[in-house]
Design a protein around this nucleic acid. Sequence first.
DNA 1: TCGTCATAACGAACGGCGTTCGTTCGCGGT
DNA 2: ACCGCGAACGAACGCCGTTCGTTATGACGA
Lengths: 262, 262
Amino acid sequence: MAQTARGKTPKSPKSPNTPKTPPAAGQGPTELPTPPWRRRARPVRQPLSQPSIVDAALRIVDAQGLDAVSMRRVAEELNTGPASLYVYVSGKEELLELVLDRVLGTVDVPEPVPGEWEEQVKGVVREARDALASHGDLARASMAVIAAGPNALVISEGLLTILRAAGIPDQACAWILDVLMLYLSADAYESALYRSRAESGEDPAVMAQAYLDEVIAALPGERFPSLVALKPHMVGGDRDARFEFGLDIMISGLGVVAGREK
Amino acid sequence: MAQTARGKTPKSPKSPNTPKTPPAAGQGPTELPTPPWRRRARPVRQPLSQPSIVDAALRIVDAQGLDAVSMRRVAEELNTGPASLYVYVSGKEELLELVLDRVLGTVDVPEPVPGEWEEQVKGVVREARDALASHGDLARASMAVIAAGPNALVISEGLLTILRAAGIPDQACAWILDVLMLYLSADAYESALYRSRAESGEDPAVMAQAYLDEVIAALPGERFPSLVALKPHMVGGDRDARFEFGLDIMISGLGVVAGREK
DNA sequence: TCGTCATAACGAACGGCGTTCGTTCGCGGT
DNA sequence: ACCGCGAACGAACGCCGTTCGTTATGACGA
């Protein structure tokens, strides 16, 4: 058989648009073997590569959520079989690490500006959280992975630089960095969790909140007076405000503690 | 066929000890039907129930780690098939929620003591973290679940009570509660992650640290000066100290922020 | 120009998973 | 003595991540 074109050219009644196949050879019965005297024009489909695989995975996350990302699904997106991916990626875990790090690449890290370290740190952390949150429920993978990709390292380096320039003791710098990263990942994770629950459930965004609401409402008021009393503050406050509050607390506390022991 | 004894009595060359089957009926060819005139002694095996299922799951977590917990494995532990569990538990997710909440039941929550709120809050959070951490890598499930089980609610109520008694504004109480729970879960999660990596890997506990160590060591010093300089503080500090530092920062910061806006 | 050969790509399969379906059967109530 | 109900279950479905052994390709030395 003459033609090869790496991937399976349309092999069955499949997707409506296989975007990469060359426009040549009129729309007729597609399965006809190419005449041997006319070699197929260039295969066109760019060869597999780590970036293209990461891209495909990210596309799936954006379009259908993290749970839809399986090796099979990613391979399908690239018109190949799951086994082919293992040349470029050691497994699903590494793939997700790469996707996460790629997303973190959009965060930019400023040079330290004297007197603005608090706002600068908050800004970076905020940006990283938003980057994670801007790709569906991708953040649900953010805790399952040791963040040591190149982009994560750039962020860490930037934060450390700002903190040290502000005169925070070294040990405190190291610890607060870890704590902030943990906080950021956890918040993004939780948001993503709620988002994916809400999506798969009935209501668009209410569901999870409504559930907690319900639980608290059903509580015996004499056993759980504080929870019942604070219910409006618990379910009502939006996530961003809460995140900001946490950030605020940590940075303020850092000032106190660092000052205390210096 | 006369005998029932709920579970499959040994049905194939299987496990060496099926711990629950009654000691009766000598060890001979086991598959023989029990003579109809001699009804099987009591089934003995206690009937399935939600608590017994949760117990079994927790046993597996302790013995073989979270990844070993599958519906099939839990069912096997109870000498039955996976389908039988669904009478008492809606699915794997609910099962894990129940296991987590059961573990949180060991945390005890003090009445507020005036002037000691900071230490009290830290104590409860610490205890909850340790409870999660004391069951292998169970905590790896702690973020995947909305903590709204009865025991989690007791803890929340206790913390809120202490905080309010200390005069913290309501909105701040609600937020800091969320933030602390998130921090606690995330830390336990991360610890569990490292633990299970270390276990499945070669070295007993070094691996993950050594990995980060390696990464940082391989960094170009002129591009990542702060990371390289702070390396000893990053990989060296033990988890407990870091956790405590985060707790300290948050509580201190809470004082600052609450004071600032009251 | 023609083999040679490393290796990317692949089809097929393995063993496991969570969950569901339809059936069986012991037991409490009549 | 019978019946009906629901717990228990065996089997299957449709996925999953990963591995194995084979095939095809393209660069390169002869």
